[in-house]
Design a protein around this nucleic acid. Structure first.
Length: 458
RNA sequence: GGCCGGAUGGCAGAGUGGUGAUGCAGAGGACUGCAAAUCCUCGUACGUCGGUUCAAUUCCGGCUCCGGCCUCCA
């Protein structure tokens, strides 16, 4: 396959050549489990899930690892303020996360390692870094020494001088260099801690990803993904830890970063408080519509989340499902040739907007097709394209009916439609139109055809 | 202050050195008891000032504006 990806490391669109063509390995930074996932958290999940689907199609084996960070000071703070146990909070939040991401049709990763289950690996890695002279112990902390690594800053393209000049935070006195970062820090008795050669403590943020990616994907693997905001310091520090521990030239070869999600032109983030959760959105829109909204902008661009954008994604899905329902009785044929433009768009650095445009073209031609052969090919292509983007996973009928939330039930609607059909048969159009209007007022649209009347919610 | 991105038609959003993105919205038409869905046809684009070129929205430079990173964040 001719996949090219924009590689943050080279600032270029590079041809994707896996280290092992029989086994592609990808790591994506997962959530810190202390609160509901917001829509900005969902963007990388959906983007890299789409990449995962594309890779699975092209390569015999793909291992996708996404961590769960379940040891973190934000979690500790949440536990303290709520009076609940850390374990309770992390388990509950991880379960929410799984539910929400599944509702967005995100496939589960092959491996989902938890930080607290890999403390031993982290301690071992830290010990190696100390042995090799890349880390030092100070006041119960273990710090990575950025001065020990000449290439530090290569991913984010910043020199150490710049970082010192731009530093806006107070530098802890025990740091040899202001850029040094924590690998291990001491825990007081009321905080989670593990015994280590440096006393009871807990890991710094960055070390878990280095330790767990190394364990599950090997010291070198293909793709490392995450949000753009992780480029510095998180990914820079992961590179520092992993390459200093495992040797030059190791670690991830392609670094892919999705752009921010904006709301009203501002970056959405937990710290700004202008976020809304996937869970809340799912109450007002189907998961597929949320997913398609996230894929409607190229992953590298900022995405401004709006209700209108969500509505447009819903309409696109309506259009595709409608096209598929028309050929519900047609068995899918060989759609490979018709799928090619969709595939080409996705292989071009995951150009999902272009892929969506190609799907619209498939739908238009499917709507026009009158030969069974054309219908079979185009239907297969549209269904396959949907599987690549992780949409069209419902049936057209189920999609059309939506969920029963308030308003008349399916049975009530069916009864009104039957009454209207009877009125029409009797040419009582006033009564027929009254029923149509009553349903319209309840958000139900009717579509008459030779085959009968269909209805849709929304 | 340092470093990154971006600026496309009413809206969203791809892309390209020279002809069509696409979707939504809008206008007209076909179809329909009326609709809806579908199909056909049609507007309105590439921030600004220069440069390179036969030709620039696309390449180069200045400017303006917007956003982000440099601190926990996807």
């Amino acid at each position: 396959m001719g996949l090219t990806v924009y590689n943050t490391l080279t600032r270029n669109r590079d041809a994707f050549v896996p280290l092992d063509p029989t086994h592609v390995r990808m790591y994506v930074c997962g959530p810190t489990v202390y609160d509901r996932a917001h829509i900005g958290n969902a963007r990388p999940v959906v983007v890299f899930d789409t990449l995962y689907r594309l890779l699975k199609r092209a390569f015999p084996k793909v291992t996708y690892a996404r961590n769960i960070t379940d040891v973190d000071d934000k979690i500790n703070a949440r536990a303290k303020e709520s009076g609940r146990s850390i374990r309770e909070i992390t388990e509950e939040t991880a379960a929410w996360y799984h539910d929400d991401m599944a509702a967005l049709n995100a496939l589960p990763p092959d491996v989902e390692p938890r930080a607290t289950e890999h403390i031993a690996e982290m301690i071992a890695m830290i010990a190696v870094l100390i042995d090799k002279g890349h880390a030092y112990e100070a006041e119960g902390h273990v710090l990575f020494s950025v001065g020990s690594m000449p290439d530090y800053g290569a991913l984010s393209r910043r020199s150490q001088d710049e970082m010192i000049a731009g530093a806006r935070v107070e530098v802890a006195p025990y740091k040899k260099d202001p850029g040094d970062f924590v690998l291990w820090k001491p825990s007081s008795d009321d905080l989670p801690g593990w015994d280590s050669p440096w006393g009871r403590g807990r890991p710094g943020w960055h070390i878990e990803c280095s330790a767990m990616s190394g364990k599950y994907l090997g010291t070198s693997f293909d793709i490392h993904g995450g949000g753009q905001d992780l480029v510095f310091p998180h990914h820079e520090n992961e590179i520092a830890q992993s390459t200093c521990a495992h040797g030059p030239g190791t670690f991830a070869r392609y670094w892919m970063h999705n752009g921010y999600l904006m709301v009203d032109g501002e970056k959405m983030s937990k710290s700004l408080g202008n976020f809304f959760t996937v869970h809340d959105l799912l109450a007002k829109a189907p998961g597929e519509a949320i997913r398609l909204t996230l894929l409607s902008t190229h992953y590298h661009q900022p995405l401004n989340w709006t209700d209108d954008g969500l509505a447009q994604a819903k309409q696109a899905l309506d259009r595709w499902y409608t096209a598929l329902e028309r050929v519900a009785d047609v068995a899918p044929g060989d759609g490979a040739a018709e799928l090619a433009p969709v595939l080409a768009a996705l292989e071009d650095d995951l150009n999902t907007p272009a892929a969506i445009a190609a799907m619209h073209d498939l739908a238009t031609r499917l709507n026009k097709a009158d030969s069974a052969d054309d219908q079979a090919r185009l239907k297969a292509a549209l269904v396959d394209a949907g599987a690549l983007l992780g949409v069209l996973q419902s049936t057209p009928e189920a999609w059309r009916r939506g969920g029963e939330s308030g308003g008349p039930s399916d049975a009530e609607i069916d009864a009104m439609v039957a009454a209207r059909t009877a009125a029409r048969a009797a040419r009582d159009f006033a009564e027929a139109d009254r029923l149509r209007q009553a349903l319209a007022d309840a958000g139900v649209t009717l579509e008459d055809s030779a085959a009968g009347t269909r209805w849709r919610r929304g």
